[in-house]
Simulated assay, not measured.
Amino acid sequence: MAGAVDLSGLKARAEQRGSAPRGAAPGGAAAPPAGGDGAPVVEGAPPPAGGHVIEVTEDNFQTEVLERSMTVPVVVDLWAEWCQPCKQLSPTLEKLAAEGGGAWILATVDVDANPRIAQMFQVQSIPTVYVVVAQQPVTSFNGVQPEPELRSWIGQILDALRERMPAIAEAEARAGQDGGGEPAEPAPEPEDPRFTAAEDALERGDYDAAVFAYENILAEEPANTEAQAALAQVRFMSRAEQADPSAVTRADAAPDDVEAQKAAADAELAAGQVEAAFDRLVKTVQRTAGDDRDAAREHLVGLFELFAADDPRVTASRRALARALY
Protein backbone atom coordinates (compact mmCIF):
# COMPACT_ATOMS: atom_id res chain seq x y z
CA MET A 1 0.00 0.00 0.00
CA ALA A 2 1.23 3.50 -0.79
CA GLY A 3 0.18 4.65 2.67
CA ALA A 4 3.11 2.79 4.15
CA VAL A 5 5.59 5.24 2.63
CA ASP A 6 7.32 7.42 5.21
CA LEU A 7 7.76 11.03 4.07
CA SER A 8 8.99 12.24 7.44
CA GLY A 9 12.63 12.42 6.37
CA LEU A 10 12.10 15.07 3.74
CA LYS A 11 9.52 16.81 5.89
CA ALA A 12 11.97 17.03 8.80
CA ARG A 13 14.68 18.35 6.55
CA ALA A 14 12.35 21.08 5.32
CA GLU A 15 11.28 21.97 8.87
CA GLN A 16 14.91 22.54 9.80
CA ARG A 17 14.94 25.31 7.22
CA GLY A 18 12.52 27.25 9.41
CA SER A 19 8.91 26.55 8.39
CA ALA A 20 6.59 23.80 9.63
CA PRO A 21 4.06 22.26 7.22
CA ARG A 22 0.63 23.82 7.29
CA GLY A 23 -1.79 21.54 9.10
CA ALA A 24 0.93 19.53 10.88
CA ALA A 25 0.01 17.98 14.20
CA PRO A 26 1.78 19.04 17.45
CA GLY A 27 5.41 18.02 17.52
CA GLY A 28 5.64 18.01 13.73
CA ALA A 29 3.72 14.75 13.19
CA ALA A 30 1.91 14.56 9.88
CA ALA A 31 -1.84 15.01 9.76
CA PRO A 32 -3.87 11.82 9.17
CA PRO A 33 -4.59 10.72 5.59
CA ALA A 34 -7.61 12.41 4.05
CA GLY A 35 -8.95 9.10 2.81
CA GLY A 36 -9.36 7.54 6.27
CA ASP A 37 -11.94 7.88 9.04
CA GLY A 38 -11.77 11.12 10.97
CA ALA A 39 -9.89 12.88 8.17
CA PRO A 40 -9.77 16.66 8.53
CA VAL A 41 -12.01 18.94 6.53
CA VAL A 42 -9.68 21.44 4.90
CA GLU A 43 -11.06 24.80 3.91
CA GLY A 44 -9.70 27.64 1.84
CA ALA A 45 -7.89 27.92 -1.46
CA PRO A 46 -4.56 26.23 -2.04
CA PRO A 47 -1.34 28.27 -1.75
CA PRO A 48 -0.70 30.43 -4.82
CA ALA A 49 1.03 28.54 -7.62
CA GLY A 50 2.79 29.49 -10.79
CA GLY A 51 0.75 26.85 -12.63
CA HIS A 52 -0.74 23.45 -12.10
CA VAL A 53 2.47 21.57 -12.97
CA ILE A 54 5.36 22.13 -10.57
CA GLU A 55 8.95 20.89 -10.73
CA VAL A 56 9.71 19.57 -7.25
CA THR A 57 13.14 19.20 -5.63
CA GLU A 58 14.32 18.10 -2.22
CA ASP A 59 14.49 21.77 -1.21
CA ASN A 60 10.89 22.69 -2.10
CA PHE A 61 9.24 19.32 -1.36
CA GLN A 62 7.66 20.61 1.86
CA THR A 63 6.03 23.66 0.27
CA GLU A 64 5.06 22.24 -3.09
CA VAL A 65 3.93 18.77 -1.99
CA LEU A 66 3.25 18.57 1.75
CA GLU A 67 1.70 22.02 2.23
CA ARG A 68 -0.30 21.93 -0.99
CA SER A 69 -1.62 18.47 -0.16
CA MET A 70 -3.54 19.99 2.77
CA THR A 71 -5.93 21.70 0.34
CA VAL A 72 -5.88 19.74 -2.92
CA PRO A 73 -4.46 16.35 -3.96
CA VAL A 74 -0.88 16.41 -5.22
CA VAL A 75 -0.02 13.85 -7.87
CA VAL A 76 3.71 13.13 -7.70
CA ASP A 77 5.22 11.94 -11.00
CA LEU A 78 8.62 10.29 -10.39
CA TRP A 79 10.59 10.16 -13.65
CA ALA A 80 14.07 10.37 -15.18
CA GLU A 81 15.42 11.77 -18.43
CA TRP A 82 16.61 8.35 -19.62
CA CYS A 83 13.23 6.66 -19.03
CA GLN A 84 11.32 6.32 -22.31
CA PRO A 85 7.97 5.27 -20.74
CA CYS A 86 8.20 8.37 -18.53
CA LYS A 87 8.24 10.47 -21.70
CA GLN A 88 4.95 8.85 -22.71
CA LEU A 89 3.24 9.25 -19.33
CA SER A 90 4.36 12.70 -18.16
CA PRO A 91 2.89 14.75 -21.05
CA THR A 92 -0.50 13.09 -20.50
CA LEU A 93 -0.44 13.93 -16.80
CA GLU A 94 0.56 17.51 -17.61
CA LYS A 95 -2.34 17.80 -20.06
CA LEU A 96 -4.82 16.53 -17.47
CA ALA A 97 -3.41 18.83 -14.78
CA ALA A 98 -3.92 21.82 -17.05
CA GLU A 99 -7.50 20.72 -17.72
CA GLY A 100 -8.06 20.33 -13.96
CA GLY A 101 -7.60 24.05 -13.43
CA GLY A 102 -6.02 23.66 -9.98
CA ALA A 103 -8.39 21.01 -8.59
CA TRP A 104 -5.21 18.95 -8.22
CA ILE A 105 -1.54 19.68 -8.65
CA LEU A 106 1.03 17.68 -10.62
CA ALA A 107 4.45 17.60 -8.96
CA THR A 108 7.21 16.27 -11.22
CA VAL A 109 10.32 14.79 -9.59
CA ASP A 110 13.53 13.90 -11.45
CA VAL A 111 14.72 10.89 -9.40
CA ASP A 112 18.30 11.22 -10.65
CA ALA A 113 18.53 14.78 -9.33
CA ASN A 114 16.50 14.08 -6.16
CA PRO A 115 17.45 10.61 -4.86
CA ARG A 116 16.15 11.31 -1.34
CA ILE A 117 12.63 11.80 -2.66
CA ALA A 118 12.86 8.56 -4.63
CA GLN A 119 14.08 6.80 -1.50
CA MET A 120 11.24 8.18 0.61
CA PHE A 121 8.69 6.90 -1.90
CA GLN A 122 10.47 3.52 -2.06
CA VAL A 123 10.70 3.76 -5.84
CA GLN A 124 11.61 0.42 -7.45
CA SER A 125 10.98 1.35 -11.09
CA ILE A 126 9.85 4.36 -13.08
CA PRO A 127 7.57 5.88 -14.02
CA THR A 128 5.94 5.71 -10.60
CA VAL A 129 3.05 8.01 -9.60
CA TYR A 130 1.80 8.70 -6.06
CA VAL A 131 -1.11 10.80 -4.80
CA VAL A 132 -0.37 12.75 -1.61
CA VAL A 133 -3.30 14.01 0.47
CA ALA A 134 -3.01 15.73 3.87
CA GLN A 135 0.74 15.03 3.82
CA GLN A 136 0.28 11.28 3.33
CA PRO A 137 0.51 9.12 0.18
CA VAL A 138 -2.85 7.44 -0.36
CA THR A 139 -2.58 5.59 -3.69
CA SER A 140 -0.07 4.90 -6.45
CA PHE A 141 0.65 3.07 -9.70
CA ASN A 142 3.65 2.10 -11.84
CA GLY A 143 4.17 2.20 -15.57
CA VAL A 144 2.44 3.91 -18.47
CA GLN A 145 -1.37 4.15 -18.37
CA PRO A 146 -3.71 5.12 -21.24
CA GLU A 147 -5.18 8.62 -21.04
CA PRO A 148 -8.81 7.45 -20.53
CA GLU A 149 -7.75 5.33 -17.53
CA LEU A 150 -5.74 8.23 -16.08
CA ARG A 151 -8.68 10.58 -16.54
CA SER A 152 -11.01 8.12 -14.79
CA TRP A 153 -8.50 7.49 -11.99
CA ILE A 154 -8.07 11.19 -11.25
CA GLY A 155 -11.83 11.72 -11.41
CA GLN A 156 -12.37 9.02 -8.78
CA ILE A 157 -9.81 10.65 -6.50
CA LEU A 158 -11.47 14.05 -6.81
CA ASP A 159 -14.93 12.56 -6.23
CA ALA A 160 -13.73 10.86 -3.04
CA LEU A 161 -12.14 14.05 -1.66
CA ARG A 162 -14.41 16.85 -2.89
CA GLU A 163 -16.44 17.12 0.33
CA ARG A 164 -13.36 16.99 2.57
CA MET A 165 -11.34 19.44 0.47
CA PRO A 166 -13.56 22.35 -0.65
CA ALA A 167 -10.69 23.87 -2.65
CA ILE A 168 -11.26 21.14 -5.24
CA ALA A 169 -14.79 22.32 -5.99
CA GLU A 170 -13.66 25.97 -5.90
CA ALA A 171 -10.99 25.29 -8.51
CA GLU A 172 -13.45 23.35 -10.65
CA ALA A 173 -15.95 26.21 -10.45
CA ARG A 174 -13.30 28.74 -11.47
CA ALA A 175 -12.28 26.54 -14.41
CA GLY A 176 -15.93 26.36 -15.49
CA GLN A 177 -16.40 30.14 -15.23
CA ASP A 178 -13.20 30.90 -17.13
CA GLY A 179 -14.31 28.66 -19.96
CA GLY A 180 -17.92 29.83 -19.96
CA GLY A 181 -19.21 26.63 -18.38
CA GLU A 182 -17.98 23.13 -17.68
CA PRO A 183 -15.02 22.45 -19.96
CA ALA A 184 -15.80 19.81 -22.54
CA GLU A 185 -13.89 16.60 -22.11
CA PRO A 186 -11.81 15.97 -25.23
CA ALA A 187 -12.50 12.77 -27.08
CA PRO A 188 -9.87 10.18 -26.22
CA GLU A 189 -7.52 9.13 -28.96
CA PRO A 190 -8.24 5.64 -30.28
CA GLU A 191 -6.08 3.05 -28.57
CA ASP A 192 -3.86 0.62 -30.44
CA PRO A 193 -4.94 -2.79 -29.10
CA ARG A 194 -1.43 -4.16 -29.65
CA PHE A 195 0.07 -1.61 -27.29
CA THR A 196 -2.82 -2.06 -24.87
CA ALA A 197 -2.04 -5.78 -24.66
CA ALA A 198 1.63 -5.02 -23.97
CA GLU A 199 0.80 -2.42 -21.33
CA ASP A 200 -1.70 -4.74 -19.64
CA ALA A 201 0.96 -7.44 -19.44
CA LEU A 202 3.42 -4.95 -17.98
CA GLU A 203 0.85 -3.84 -15.41
CA ARG A 204 0.50 -7.48 -14.32
CA GLY A 205 4.26 -7.76 -14.02
CA ASP A 206 4.34 -10.31 -16.84
CA TYR A 207 7.49 -9.14 -18.60
CA ASP A 208 7.63 -12.14 -20.93
CA ALA A 209 4.15 -11.39 -22.28
CA ALA A 210 5.00 -7.71 -22.68
CA VAL A 211 8.19 -8.57 -24.58
CA PHE A 212 6.21 -10.94 -26.81
CA ALA A 213 3.60 -8.24 -27.54
CA TYR A 214 6.20 -5.60 -28.44
CA GLU A 215 8.14 -8.10 -30.58
CA ASN A 216 4.93 -8.86 -32.50
CA ILE A 217 4.44 -5.14 -33.17
CA LEU A 218 8.01 -4.88 -34.48
CA ALA A 219 7.53 -7.95 -36.64
CA GLU A 220 4.75 -6.04 -38.40
CA GLU A 221 6.37 -2.59 -38.17
CA PRO A 222 10.18 -2.88 -37.80
CA ALA A 223 10.54 0.92 -37.77
CA ASN A 224 8.02 1.53 -34.95
CA THR A 225 10.21 3.61 -32.63
CA GLU A 226 7.68 3.56 -29.77
CA ALA A 227 7.69 -0.24 -29.73
CA GLN A 228 11.49 -0.34 -30.02
CA ALA A 229 11.93 1.94 -27.02
CA ALA A 230 9.31 0.11 -24.97
CA LEU A 231 10.83 -3.29 -25.74
CA ALA A 232 14.28 -2.15 -24.62
CA GLN A 233 12.77 -0.70 -21.43
CA VAL A 234 10.80 -3.86 -20.60
CA ARG A 235 13.82 -6.10 -21.13
CA PHE A 236 15.88 -3.92 -18.83
CA MET A 237 13.12 -3.79 -16.17
CA SER A 238 12.96 -7.59 -16.19
CA ARG A 239 16.71 -7.88 -15.64
CA ALA A 240 16.80 -5.10 -13.04
CA GLU A 241 14.02 -6.71 -10.99
CA GLN A 242 16.13 -9.87 -10.67
CA ALA A 243 19.41 -8.05 -10.08
CA ASP A 244 21.67 -9.25 -7.28
CA PRO A 245 22.42 -6.39 -4.82
CA SER A 246 26.02 -7.64 -4.62
CA ALA A 247 26.50 -7.56 -8.41
CA VAL A 248 28.82 -4.54 -8.39
CA THR A 249 31.02 -5.96 -5.63
CA ARG A 250 31.29 -9.32 -7.40
CA ALA A 251 32.10 -7.65 -10.72
CA ASP A 252 34.82 -5.49 -9.19
CA ALA A 253 36.40 -8.64 -7.76
CA ALA A 254 36.28 -10.42 -11.15
CA PRO A 255 37.09 -7.87 -13.89
CA ASP A 256 37.41 -10.58 -16.58
CA ASP A 257 33.97 -12.09 -15.88
CA VAL A 258 31.85 -10.56 -18.65
CA GLU A 259 28.54 -11.82 -17.25
CA ALA A 260 29.39 -10.25 -13.89
CA GLN A 261 30.23 -6.95 -15.61
CA LYS A 262 26.91 -6.98 -17.50
CA ALA A 263 24.96 -7.63 -14.28
CA ALA A 264 26.86 -4.89 -12.46
CA ALA A 265 26.17 -2.41 -15.27
CA ASP A 266 22.44 -3.19 -15.01
CA ALA A 267 22.56 -2.64 -11.25
CA GLU A 268 24.37 0.68 -11.65
CA LEU A 269 21.96 1.88 -14.31
CA ALA A 270 18.96 0.90 -12.15
CA ALA A 271 20.49 3.01 -9.37
CA GLY A 272 20.80 6.00 -11.68
CA GLN A 273 24.59 5.68 -12.11
CA VAL A 274 24.42 5.95 -15.89
CA GLU A 275 27.99 7.02 -16.62
CA ALA A 276 29.39 4.34 -14.30
CA ALA A 277 27.40 1.62 -16.07
CA PHE A 278 28.52 2.77 -19.51
CA ASP A 279 32.16 3.18 -18.43
CA ARG A 280 32.21 -0.31 -16.90
CA LEU A 281 31.18 -1.94 -20.18
CA VAL A 282 33.49 0.21 -22.32
CA LYS A 283 36.42 -0.91 -20.16
CA THR A 284 35.23 -4.51 -20.43
CA VAL A 285 35.30 -4.20 -24.22
CA GLN A 286 38.83 -2.77 -24.01
CA ARG A 287 40.27 -5.69 -22.08
CA THR A 288 38.43 -8.59 -23.76
CA ALA A 289 38.38 -10.20 -27.19
CA GLY A 290 36.29 -12.51 -29.32
CA ASP A 291 32.91 -13.61 -28.00
CA ASP A 292 33.46 -11.89 -24.66
CA ARG A 293 34.07 -8.57 -26.37
CA ASP A 294 30.99 -9.01 -28.55
CA ALA A 295 28.83 -9.84 -25.52
CA ALA A 296 29.99 -6.73 -23.63
CA ARG A 297 29.54 -4.51 -26.70
CA GLU A 298 26.04 -5.82 -27.45
CA HIS A 299 24.96 -5.32 -23.84
CA LEU A 300 26.24 -1.74 -23.87
CA VAL A 301 24.46 -0.97 -27.15
CA GLY A 302 21.27 -2.40 -25.61
CA LEU A 303 21.60 0.01 -22.69
CA PHE A 304 22.03 2.91 -25.13
CA GLU A 305 18.55 2.10 -26.46
CA LEU A 306 17.03 3.10 -23.10
CA PHE A 307 17.99 6.70 -23.79
CA ALA A 308 17.38 9.33 -26.42
CA ALA A 309 19.89 9.07 -29.24
CA ASP A 310 21.15 12.60 -28.56
CA ASP A 311 21.61 12.08 -24.81
CA PRO A 312 25.12 13.45 -24.12
CA ARG A 313 25.96 10.45 -21.96
CA VAL A 314 25.14 8.12 -24.84
CA THR A 315 27.06 10.27 -27.33
CA ALA A 316 30.16 10.30 -25.12
CA SER A 317 29.99 6.57 -24.48
CA ARG A 318 29.52 5.76 -28.16
CA ARG A 319 32.73 7.64 -28.91
CA ALA A 320 34.53 5.80 -26.10
CA LEU A 321 33.22 2.47 -27.42
CA ALA A 322 34.47 3.27 -30.93
CA ARG A 323 37.93 4.03 -29.54
CA ALA A 324 37.87 0.77 -27.56
CA LEU A 325 36.96 -1.23 -30.67
CA TYR A 326 39.24 0.43 -33.18
Rank of each mutant, 00 (worst) to 15 (best):
Q145C: 09
P146D: 05
E147C: 11
S152M: 11
W153V: 00
I154Y: 14
G155C: 03
Q156S: 12
Q156W: 12
D159S: 12
D159P: 14
L161A: 13
R162D: 08
R164Q: 10
A171Y: 03
E172T: 10
A173M: 05
R174K: 02
R174Y: 05
A175W: 06
A175Y: 09
G176D: 11
Q177M: 11
D178S: 10
G180C: 07
G181N: 08
P183V: 02
A184P: 06
P186A: 09
A187W: 15
P188L: 11
E189C: 07
P190I: 10
P190D: 12
E191I: 11
D192A: 07
P193W: 09
P193C: 05
R194N: 03
F195M: 06
F195D: 00
A198P: 00
E199T: 14
D200P: 10
A201C: 02
A201M: 03
L202I: 02
L202R: 14
E203I: 05
G205A: 09
D206C: 00
D206R: 11
D206Q: 01
D206E: 04
Y207K: 03
D208Q: 14
A210M: 01
N216S: 10
A219L: 01
A219W: 05
E221Y: 13
E221D: 12
E221R: 15
P222A: 08
P222C: 09
A223D: 08
T225K: 15
Q228D: 00
A229H: 11
A229Q: 11
A230R: 15
A230I: 07
V234E: 00
F236N: 07
S238K: 05
R239I: 04
A240P: 00
Q242W: 05
A243W: 06
A243T: 11
D244I: 11
D244G: 08
D244W: 14
P245L: 04
V248G: 09
R250V: 07
A251K: 01
D252M: 03
D252A: 11
D252I: 02
A253D: 04
P255Y: 05
D256N: 13
D256R: 15
D257L: 07
V258Y: 07
A263D: 13
A263Q: 13
A264K: 12
E268M: 15
A270H: 01
A271P: 07
